[in-house]
Design a protein around this nucleic acid. Structure first.
Lengths: 217, 217, 217, 217
DNA sequence: GATGAATGAGGGTTCATTCAT
DNA sequence: TATGAATGAACCCTCATTCAT
């Protein structure tokens, strides 16, 4: 506002008062997520994170314990976004699965970096996800139980619940992880198809629900 | 690999004291695919490739021009596996799509590293895929045309062809890319569900075909 | 050097425990000039420069962007020394040429490394001198015009101006580039001839001026 | 003549019969002189020499003891070209010096690589010229004596003989060493001055002889 | 708190030379 | 003889991290 901000502190320059620890940490997290999702753990340098957060390298190390620690922390925070978007308690499979697909599509479009970090981590072997799996397994079991319940009550065709969940996961994740692939495949003179998130969510939802033999809700 | 090969020894002496150039090159390719699929381009060291191929680091450079060149070559060879498994000429959507899904599932189980390298490359921005996209786009257009043709003839429900193809891609790819995720989710005392490839291919096929409103063939 | 300097300490504390950035940069430049002039660009290792400057190799890279960049910078700085020692505006050829010869001889004796770096670069093809030639050509044209003017006014014999300038260049440069050759040729018990710079400048000047038919000024 | 020659053996491909040792050595010498004069000792790789000579690297090492040894040998052979072009026995300074200048100019134009190797070696410290200096000094002493004799007899002005010899050396050498510099300085729209060797030799000769006060012969 | 500087390890690559065939 | 392969040293450079001010 008063003076042109120094170009070295992009993420923090707006406020001329000394930014508090929390604000710096937030800037670091944003920078870390951006870098890790673009380049991966090995490909990201602390230098790049520091610059993106408007800090020097030693300054960065004042706030974080190390590259790997920051990565782990971000990974855990990232993964929390997927909690609770599957309403295992409902009795309407069409609504539950439809909402689940829609939520995942919107998450993929809203926070693609988050999804990409997770996919990278899984590709890397998932060694930093030890704390994630137990909880994830538990929630998966609940979902599987719900689906099998619906099948038992004749509300849907007898599909394999694990396969169904993973299929939904893979399809919805795809639009975050492969943004580039999607663009490249559509590129020249193919203006007919743009990944409109609302339409996409509907299409996907329809495909899956019909595939499960669930009547359009 | 730039440097020309000249197999001086006949096949009879193949198992002689010194492994021939072809065998060493093969070992390097295998090592490269393994390393790149596990760690990615940035995370892989020539040291690691060399060790895995049973060579020293400078020895490796006797056979390859550089890390990036090896990577590009492997990436291109890897990508060739996906050509021609979609029979766009047929008039039976159930057979074509079913075979396509089955082929992709088998590829994912047979050569998971191959798929992982590709997924990593796409996450990294796909800068090394310049030569791949044009051909890929062409084949995608053919598939889309075939699907739209089937829809026009009332052979299947009016689903978005691009979405359908990407969905199939994502689902089938998933079992290669996320082998670990799958295992972790199933882990303890969950012997009930193992990713049996034949069963999986059938389940997926059924789900998708029913989702497209294609009568069981 | 790309990275910006920020001398935080006042001149008072200049001689403190840690040498300032400017002093380190100066040490690097001196070391670089010495090494490059002795061994050439290809023959010089960053190791050698670092040691000569009292640094470790990675430390050196903290201050410079790379060997070639350092070389280019030094080359350009070196070349600046030759500007403006030819007074093309004067009407007294004897004075102008005499002063020019004297200045070049003194430069050759004062900064022989500078001259050697330049000569090496020319031998190497001069690919790093792209920015130097245009200015150099312009100044050469001015000198040629001045000489031809003197000839037209009958102030000197009709010598080829380009040849004269190059001859002067070559003769004066020689004592920097071939310091060793000179010493070797004079070596044992030949105390009779030492390259006394003042005497040499006079002798050269006399030879050339007489060769041009310019009366002793 | 019969079949197109294999591109890997440029220097030897013409004769299909196995080339003799002498021919291979000649090819190596030519290749070595070319490479060393372009890149210097440090900048030249045995690979480059081998390729230029139409050999493989190990083949090259079968014929030579090492890079440095080849270099030394070439340096000595190269230096021999300068012997005997100064006729110290004559009594006509104009003819002797004029012929000397002319010979050196022609050598510089005929075999510029030779001159460049020597200049590089002197810049490098001349450590490989140990065997050259004694003889060179002897010949220099003879030339100095001749010149001083002419001066004593009033045949020329009393110039410093060493300076004169070095000046001639430097001027004539210049056109070999700095071919590039010469071209660059003349470059655009300066067609007026081309380094015609005959004219140049005359101009230089005239300049120096007049500078020595020797009447035009 | 923040900054310039330092450090030690490692990464990719090239090279002169030699070995085994 | 000639060739593919091997070797060990070195070289340029980057990085994560820490120190001293």
């Amino acid at each position: 506002m008063t003076k042109p901000s120094a170009p070295t502190k992009p993420a923090l320059a707006a406020r001329s008062v000394r930014p508090g620890r929390e604000q710096i940490m937030a800037a670091i997290r944003i920078a870390g997520i951006a870098e890790f999702s673009e380049k991966g753990l090995a490909g990201t340098s602390t230098q790049a994170i520091a610059e993106r957060a408007g800090l020097t390298k030693p300054q960065l190390h004042y706030y974080i314990a190390g590259k790997e620690q920051l990565y782990e922390e971000l990974l855990m925070s990232v993964v929390a976004d997927w909690k609770g978007i599957f309403d295992a308690g409902s009795t309407d499979p069409g609504k539950v699965l439809g909402d689940y697909i829609r939520s995942k599509v919107h998450l993929a479009f809203d926070k693609p970096e988050v999804s990409r970090i997770f996919t990278r981590e899984v590709l890397d072997g998932g060694r930093n996800l030890d704390r994630f799996w137990p909880d994830s397994r538990k929630r998966t079991r609940e979902k599987v139980a719900a689906i099998n319940g619906w099948i038992a009550r004749g509300l849907m065709e007898p599909v394999d619940a694990h396969m169904l969940l993973m299929g939904i996961w893979a399809m919805t994740q795809f639009y975050a992880d492969s943004a580039l692939q999607v663009q490249q495949l559509m590129k020249p003179g193919q203006a007919s198809w743009t990944p409109d998130r609302a339409k996409l969510a509907d299409e996907l939802s329809t495909l899956i629900l019909r595939g499960c033999g669930i009547a359009r809700r």
